[in-house]
């Protein structure tokens, strides 16, 4: 399942697709630990980004998890944790 786990670049692309570019700060700069509020992404922007990730990578995040992440770092960790959990569940089913 390692090939479905997201990189930071994948997350940035999903953010741009879902909610447009950050007006405040260049996403290609050092923003890994910058809070989304400072980047100008609100809770709906993150929900929409999670929907893009769900469609493209089949990784589903609960709304609670999406609502709790504060930085790209935390978001990516949550996505990858969910990916590992889903892989484990799928392996268990198989």
């Amino acid at each position: 399942m390692a090939d479905t786990v997201l990189s930071f670049d994948d997350l940035k692309r999903a953010l741009r697709d879902a909610a447009g570019d950050s007006e405040e700060i260049d996403l290609d700069g050092d923003v890994y630990d910058v809070e989304f509020t400072a980047l100008g992404y609100d809770s709906l922007a993150l929900l929409e980004t999670a929907a893009v990730i769900s469609r493209e990578y089949r990784i589903t995040l609960s709304d609670d998890v999406v609502g709790s992440v504060r930085t790209p770092h935390e978001f990516l960790d949550a996505i990858n944790e969910a990916a590992v959990n889903e892989a484990a569940v799928n392996d268990g089913v198989r």
């Binding site: 741009r16 879902a18 909610a19 447009g20 570019d21 007006e23 100008g40 709906l44 929409e48």
Partner: peptide, 8 residues
């Protein structure tokens, strides 16, 4: 419009 406003 800024890119941020286009998807919404």
């Amino acid at each position: 419009l800024p890119s941020r406003l286009l998807p919404q």
